[in-house]
């Protein structure tokens, strides 16, 4: 358990936002936390899609159940949140 700040860059949103999460959070949980500050505020929801997580510049998503503490993501790294089919 450790507070872990990230930068959220949410697909279709216009701004980078501070995203306080926890090292214990899975990628799905991190994505939900990011969505809270974008989807339904400035980004339209996309029913049926899931929000996947990748590092800025990467093409592959990080597995959904992987915990933040198990990745080598650094604090205040810019993370992209992308609508995907699964």
């Amino acid at each position: 358990m450790a507070l872990f700040p990230l930068i959220s860059n949410f697909q279709n949103d216009f701004v980078l936002q501070l995203l306080p999460v926890d090292t214990e959070n899975t990628m799905d949980e991190v994505a939900a936390a990011a969505a809270y500050h974008s989807v339904g505020r400035r980004v339209a929801a996309q029913p049926g899609k899931v929000v996947r997580v990748r590092r800025q510049g990467a093409s592959d998503f990080i597995p959904r159940d992987k915990r933040l503490g198990e990745t080598d993501i650094k604090p205040m790294e810019c993370i992209e949140f992308i609508f995907a089919d699964s």
């Binding site: 930068i7 701004v15 980078l16 936002q17 501070l18 995203l19 306080p20 809270y36 500050h37 339904g40 505020r41």
Partner: peptide
């Protein structure tokens, strides 16, 4: 929902 709950970077 039209006001922020976090800071912009």
């Amino acid at each position: 929902l039209t006001v922020p709950e976090t800071l912009p970077v």
